[in-house]
């Protein structure tokens, strides 16, 4: 195995810049989805807890908002 020249024959900035951007893009996508999944799980947990409360004080969670509405 021969290690590649890290300076990439003078093109290091461009080569590593490209791969760094790719890494950032993929990590961003994975982390943002993980965050979205967690938020959904929390919302579901809250909804389950809500169902145990009397109907008059139930919280209805609608998309993107956490308005307290009584049904």
């Amino acid at each position: 195995m021969n290690w590649p020249d890290l300076s990439m024959g003078g093109y290091g900035f461009y080569v590593w810049g490209s791969y760094l951007f790719a890494l950032v893009a993929i990590v961003w996508e994975v982390l943002s989805l993980r965050h979205r999944k967690k938020a959904l799980a929390n919302e579901a947990r809250r909804a389950v807890a809500d169902d145990d409360r009397p109907a008059a004080v139930r919280t209805t969670v609608l998309r993107g908002s956490t308005n307290e509405t009584t049904s």
């Binding site: 020249d5 990439m8 024959g9 003078g10 093109y11 461009y14």
Partner: peptide, 17 residues
């Protein structure tokens, strides 16, 4: 891509992008 593929004779290592 980085250890096996040779350097390009025209574009040098920039082609690895």
């Amino acid at each position: 891509g980085f250890f096996v593929a040779p350097t390009d004779f025209q574009q040098g290592d920039a082609y690895r992008i």
